[in-house]
């Protein structure tokens, strides 16, 4: 069975035709439990997210700030397994028909077996992977299996990326390019850096792939701002925080997602 790279591409194209940016939500699988995690993922898709990234919790999330570290930690202490991540993908896609990506550090994928992971992700209806600590130079094996199974390989680029790195990334990535809005780890920020717009302009000059911006976007106003220059807006920590906050929960998660969905339409 082939993965849903094409569905991801079509979804981003449809948002573009509608004259808006897509909203991409991120939540770790298994947080706080596998079933509650699935419910939360579905809540963001029902409240207006076009695409979801399901995080594969890792013991050593070096690109994540304290919010996602805490959620990963809770999920791992709860015993989340890769099979649970794949079930989350399967149920989210089956219930909504929307594209579902996995975001994972490289070691779990490598240890599980690259071909096996790609095959099982495709079978679960997944659209691809974001692998934040796998640079292009180390990615040949993954890309081979991703292509074989119809999965997107979404690379993350940063304001520090050189022109040569950007060129290499857009030549090898599929689905979209994940442009990091800032230099740093995940987490909400008071303002989205001007660097994001510059990075998106640099990418536009060399690729037709959609460019989605993440890291640091936390509210409707920021989402609208980013939607003004990007094809998609990725929000993770702010959504996770609604589930960690005392007094938060499903309702707060859905409410924030709906605000963000309105934001990407206002940009």
């Amino acid at each position: 069975m082939s993965g849903n790279l094409q569905l991801l591409t079509d979804t981003l194209a449809r948002a573009e035709r509608e004259g808006r940016a897509a909203l991409i939500s991120y939540l770790p699988a298994g947080f706080p439990t596998v079933d509650d995690g699935i419910t939360s993922v579905l809540a963001t898709l029902d409240a207006g997210a076009d695409v979801v990234e399901v995080g594969l919790p890792h013991s050593d999330p070096v690109l994540d700030g304290p919010v996602i570290q805490t959620a990963d930690d809770i999920a791992l202490r709860g015993g989340v397994r890769i099979a649970d991540v794949l079930r989350t993908v399967r149920e989210a896609h089956a219930a909504t028909g929307k594209p579902v990506l996995v975001m994972s550090y490289w070691n779990p994928v490598s240890r599980y077996g690259v071909e096996r992971f790609a095959r099982e992700l495709a079978e679960a209806g997944g659209a691809g992977c974001v692998l934040p600590d796998l640079p292009v130079a180390e990615s040949a094996q993954w890309r081979h299996h991703a292509a074989e199974h119809g999965l997107a390989t979404v690379f993350v680029v940063a304001p520090s990326s050189t022109d040569a790195q950007l060129a290499e990334t857009v030549a090898t990535g599929t689905g979209f390019v994940y442009a990091s809005a800032l230099m740093g780890v995940t987490g909400a920020r008071a303002a989205v850096d001007e660097a994001a717009a510059v990075l998106v302009r640099r990418l536009r000059a060399i690729t037709d792939l959609p460019v989605c911006v993440g890291m640091g976007v936390s509210d409707a106003a920021q989402a609208a701002h980013v939607a003004g220059f990007a094809d998609g807006v990725i929000v993770g920590s702010a959504l996770v925080a609604t589930l960690l906050d005392a007094g938060g929960g499903e309702a707060a998660l859905a409410e924030l997602t709906a605000e963000l969905a309105a934001g990407v339409r206002a940009g």
């Binding site: 690109l63 600590d133 796998l134 640079p135 993350v156 940063a158 520090s160 990326s161 790195q165 990091s180």
Partner: peptide
């Protein structure tokens, strides 16, 4: 030049660190 000692080594860092 790729940073490998046989099958080990390499450079598994986020793109944001590649330039550094």
């Amino acid at each position: 030049a790729d940073g490998y000692f046989g099958a080990f080594g390499g450079r598994f860092v986020p793109q944001a660190l590649v330039a550094a």
